[in-house]
C-alpha cells in the first residue's frame, strides 16, 4: 500500500493506482471529461490536472500513478485557470446549438462550462473542416462539429467491444473521428453511450424529448440470458429510445449489443399481436383468451388421442423467463406425455 495526501487528506491506495483513483477513493472530486472507470485512461481532455509538490508543473491525475508520500493539490488558481482555458478551447468552433442538441441538459461539456463559468466563446476563427451530420451506421448519427475529440468512443470501441472501427484521423485542428479502413462497425452503439457531448446520437426515432420531459425506467434486457440493464426512455407512455448512463452497474457496465440498444421498436409495432387470434373458416379472427385456450386444448387433445402423444412437439422461446419455460416443458412431459420439447436458443 502507498500513503499519500490529497488536499491535505491522507489517502491509502494500492501500488499501481492513479492519482485520480486515489482521489476518488477518498471522495475528492477531480473534474474529468474523457476519463471513464471502465476504460484505461485516455488523457485527452486535460481537465484532471493536479499539482504535485516537488514537480515543476502540473500532471494529469488520470494517467499518473500515485507514489508514496506524494502531496497532491487538486484545487488552485492555476489549476482552475488551466481547466477553464481547456473548456474555452473546446468551444472554439463548437456550434452553440445546445437548444436543439439531443444532449442538451445532460451534456458533460455544458455542465462543465456552467461549473467553471465560461461565458464567452473565444474567437472561433476558421471552423474545423469536418463533415457535419452524417450517419456512421444506420443506427448512429454523427455530428462531427459537436465533437470535442475526447476519444472516449474510439477507446470504448477498441477496448470494451474489441472492434476498433473508428479512430482519430487527420492532424491538429482538422482532426476528426473517422472510420478505420477495413474494419466494419457492428452498430453496437457503445460509442453513442460514452459520448459526453451530442456528437453521436441515436438515429432510430424522430420522436425526441428533453431529458426532463421523458421518464427513464431501468429494466432488464430480454434478448438473452446475460441480464443487461438499460433505461427505457419513455415519453407519453411510448418508448423513444434506450440509454445506458450508469457505466458502473453490473452486469454490463453500460454496454449493450445492437439488439439491446436498438431493437426495441417491436414494442409498439402495429403488426404486434395484442389479442389472441383463432383461425375459423380459414381466417384468423380476434377472440377472447378463454376461447383461444379452450380451442387449443381441444385440438391438442384430439391429435393426441388420434395419433399418440409423440405426434406433438412443443417449441418455446428463449426470451421467456426460466419459470415460463419450466412450466412449458413440464406441461409437455407430464400432461401431454412427450419429450418432444425444445426452445429457439438451440437454433
Amino acid at each position: 500500500m502507498i500513503n499519500l495526501t490529497i488536499d491535505g487528506t491522507p489517502v491509502q491506495v494500492e501500488k499501481g493506482q492513479t492519482i485520480l483513483e486515489a482521489a476518488n477513493s477518498a471522495g475528492i472530486r477531480i473534474p474529468t471529461m474523457c476519463w471513464m472507470k471502465k476504460m484505461r485512461p485516455i488523457g485527452s481532455c486535460r481537465m484532471c490536472v493536479v499539482e504535485v509538490e516537488g514537480l515543476g508543473k502540473p500532471v494529469s491525475a488520470c494517467d499518473t500513478m500515485a507514489a508514496a508520500d506524494m502531496k497532491v493539490t487538486t484545487q488552485s488558481e492555476l489549476l482552475h485557470g488551466m481547466r477553464r482555458d481547456a473548456l474555452s478551447l473546446m468551444l472554439v468552433g463548437h456550434p452553440l446549438d445546445c437548444p436543439v442538441c439531443d444532449k442538451g441538459g445532460e451534456c458533460v461539456l455544458q455542465d462543465m462550462v456552467w461549473e467553471f463559468g465560461v461565458t464567452e466563446q473565444p474567437t472561433p476563427g476558421a471552423q474545423p473542416t469536418r463533415d457535419i451530420e452524417r450517419y456512421i451506421s444506420p443506427m448512429i448519427k454523427q455530428w462531427a462539429d459537436r465533437c470535442v475529440l475526447c476519444a472516449r468512443c474510439v477507446t470504448a470501441c477498441k477496448e470494451v467491444k474489441g472492434i476498433g472501427c473508428i479512430e482519430i484521423k487527420g492532424n491538429g485542428f482538422d482532426s476528426y473521428i473517422g472510420p478505420v479502413e477495413g474494419v466494419d462497425c457492428i452498430s453496437c452503439g457503445e460509442c453513442l453511450s460514452v459520448c459526453p457531448v451530442g456528437a453521436l446520437t441515436d438515429g432510430i426515432r424522430d420522436e425526441k424529448a428533453r431529458i426532463w420531459q421523458s421518464k427513464r425506467i431501468t429494466t432488464t434486457c430480454g434478448y438473452c440470458g446475460v441480464g443487461c440493464q438499460f433505461d427505457l426512455n419513455v415519453l407519453n407512455d411510448k418508448i423513444i429510445r434506450v440509454t445506458t448512463t450508469d457505466h458502473d452497474k453490473l452486469p454490463n457496465f453500460g454496454s449493450l449489443c445492437i439488439k439491446g440498444r436498438f431493437a426495441w421498436e417491436f414494442v409498439d409495432h402495429p403488426d404486434r399481436l395484442t389479442k389472441p387470434l383463432v383461425r375459423r373458416d380459414g381466417e384468423l379472427r380476434e377472440t377472447t383468451w378463454e376461447d383461444a385456450l379452450h380451442t387449443a386444448a381441444k385440438k391438442i387433445k384430439e391429435v393426441r388421442d388420434a395419433h399418440g402423444p409423440d405426434s406433438i412437439a412443443g417449441f418455446a422461446s428463449a426470451r421467456c423467463t426460466n419459470e415460463d419455460n419450466y412450466v412449458f416443458q413440464k406441461f409437455f412431459r407430464a400432461v401431454i406425455g412427450t419429450n418432444n420439447v425444445d426452445h429457439c436458443a438451440r437454433l
Partner: peptide
C-alpha cells in the same frame, strides 16, 4: 499535432 489533447490540438491553431 496528433489531435488528441485540447491545449495542443486547438491551442496551436489559435
Amino acid at each position: 499535432s496528433c489531435g488528441q489533447c485540447i491545449p495542443c490540438r486547438i491551442g496551436s491553431h489559435v
